[in-house]
Design a protein around this nucleic acid. Sequence first.
DNA 1: TGTCTATGTTGACGCATGTCGATATGGGTG
DNA 2: CACCCATATCGACATGCGTCAACATAGACA
Lengths: 120, 120
Amino acid sequence: MSNAAALPLLQPDVAPCCPPLAERPLTAEEAERAAKMFKALGDPVRLRLFSSVASHEGGEACVCDISDVGVSQPTVSHHLKKLKEAGLLSSERRGTWVYYRVEPAVLAAMGQLLTKAATA
Amino acid sequence: MSNAAALPLLQPDVAPCCPPLAERPLTAEEAERAAKMFKALGDPVRLRLFSSVASHEGGEACVCDISDVGVSQPTVSHHLKKLKEAGLLSSERRGTWVYYRVEPAVLAAMGQLLTKAATA
DNA sequence: TGTCTATGTTGACGCATGTCGATATGGGTG
DNA sequence: CACCCATATCGACATGCGTCAACATAGACA
């Protein structure tokens, strides 16, 4: 970890989570942080909810638009909370409905974690 | 997001798991498949083991080279099995030692799942 | 064959997690 | 204010999962 945090490279708004998986072995702390995000996407229901939000126009969707995943309403709410706690989604109440949107910086960071690993 | 599936782009050997997360809502079956891979990387110890293998020369490492992650030997073996079952690693016995290597196609598929989601 | 080292398997334990029904909260509408 | 709808929280239950010690297996070597 010499220049990763110091130099502003070409990715200005990428969340500074961890180096690419194939660059060097992750430290315990780095693995703890990154695993939280992977874990959040490691449930089929959560993955469908996240994909529904991400594929919605503007990367934003009302809960009522994405609740049709085969589980009860409390379970949907519980999973959305988990995705929020993992930093993958943010929520905002507008009138009657609550809208969830993806956090693009974190998503890009996860992508680089894997794509740079693949090309290295 | 119109020609992604039709045109043969630059990735010939990407595992056909799922469309990018932001292209359209994943079906239940797609989410089931993709969640397995994310779940496999959703544990800190597994993530460190995977990163150790991926960052080793040739994308391949002996168990004895990566076992120093703070848990017992049976636990290391258990996690490597999980990564193997998820399709992220493959193993091969050569003499006394067992070598694990990353599955590049699957890794690339996961990266595209996220990077295309980020740019879309 | 016997022994040593490396790795996998088994069984058990405790904690985390996904799920639901019931209930609470918050905001719109009459 | 009263009612309704959308979403969150609570409490409980069953299952899954990470972990370890003990044991099993597989190859190398004498």
